[in-house]
Design a protein around this nucleic acid. Structure first.
Lengths: 213, 213
DNA sequence: ATGTTTTTGATAGTTACTGTCATTTCATGG
DNA sequence: CCATGAAATGACAGTAACTATCAAAAACAT
């Protein structure tokens, strides 16, 4: 956040339109749609909430909702953490074991997410555990995150990012992370997600061999 | 298959209606729907194929299609291997490392599947790689398979099947297996899926640690 | 053959999503 | 401040996957 390169703008120092009215409105609309969705979902549940209701509460037309989000699931799940994670990942030392890099990146991302909006993280995990459609989309988006991982893993181990080994390792990790989120939601959000995630990483690091302790 | 407890039936030994006309028709309808779907998908692609077309070709009404399969994706993906896998898994020696048991079970299941219908396995992998909706459903069904795995893993390692460790291990493995299928499809079905799967299991067994070789 | 139960098909409805086009809203140069 | 171009919006019509309901048809039991 606050990553807008403020840099000397052509405007006088104090006042800063920075974003045109159009852009600001777009952001507001996006937020309005998301907020409306979160509220309605909390009130009625996900399935019972229709796009029409969301549009009404957000004071836009249904068309506009679809213009901002391709699917209903995306309204709940869309975020912008991937680029941040990538940045963070690149910042890690070259010789660090990749799984430790992942650990750091995840920790940072979760911290950030929890600081910005602790509700959302929980709602997502909860819906991911309950609603199949959401879980699916959730998995898809983690798969995309997994692609970033492949890149990093390949660089660290000097292997082809498209090799079976790299792909399987990355995806196994994604699967594990996914399950952590489910576990967290299903156990009523006891304990911190970060701690659970670190435990999970320990398990996977040591391998799924014999008595993987 | 052929697990129907044949036991002394009230019929004379030679002739065996065994399944009433009703049951036989149901099986035939089911197969007709599946066959129609596979054919149409091969001709036109998945998205372009509608339930109406499927119904028409299978010579049933759309209602009936939905009565047999809850979703379009299920027509493509539904199978009955899970119970077989469970059986197979229980047959493995108690003291075998669980991941080796998985290896054997997967090998057997893939052999069987390839013997019964080599086309289907490929079509599924292909669609899983191409069509998001199918991939999602695919993942869901593997997740269910993962639950069986949890049980077995727990028994072997004397841990709670609902513990984070067990759940993460099982799901990581599922993620890895999922990726194997994608890999296979994306590389044009080169090599045998079984070999790829075994490679993947080796990778995961050794752990996702430092330079997981 | 007849009464019962199961399966089917027809029909109507809901909802997520797509495509198109006219209208409105912002941006910009004079 | 206004005219002109560009972007965003809303209204509308359409598609397709599903759901629910109910009467007709098929299989079963006696």
């Amino acid at each position: 956040m606050t990553r807008m390169t403020a840099a000397r703008s052509p405007y006088s120092p104090a006042d800063r339109p920075r974003l045109g009215l159009r852009e600001r409105k777009k952001i507001k609309t996006r937020e309005a749609i998301r907020a409306a969705t979160y509220a309605l979902v909390k009130e009625q549940g996900y399935d019972a909430t229709t796009i029409e209701q969301i549009a009404e509460r957000a004071e836009v037309s249904p068309s506009t909702v679809f213009r901002y989000f391709p699917t209903k699931e995306d309204i709940v799940l869309t975020d912008e953490y991937d680029p941040l994670m990538l940045e963070e990942l690149r910042a890690r030392p070259e010789d660090e074991p990749w799984i430790d890099s992942v650990r750091h990146v995840m920790r940072k991302t979760l911290e950030l997410s929890e600081r910005e909006d602790p509700e959302v993280l929980r709602l997502r995990a909860h819906l991911g555990a309950q609603v199949p459609a959401i879980r699916s989309r959730y998995f898809e988006s983690m798969t995309e995150t997994g692609r970033l991982l492949r890149q990093a893993l390949a660089e660290r181990t000097g292997r082809d990012p498209d090799s079976l080994e790299v792909r399987v390792s990355a995806m196994a990790l994604i699967g594990g992370m996914m399950e952590v989120s489910m576990y967290w939601a299903e156990s009523g959000f006891e304990g911190s997600l970060r701690d659970l995630m670190e435990q999970a990483l320990d398990v996977m690091k040591d391998g799924l061999g014999p008595g993987n302790p």
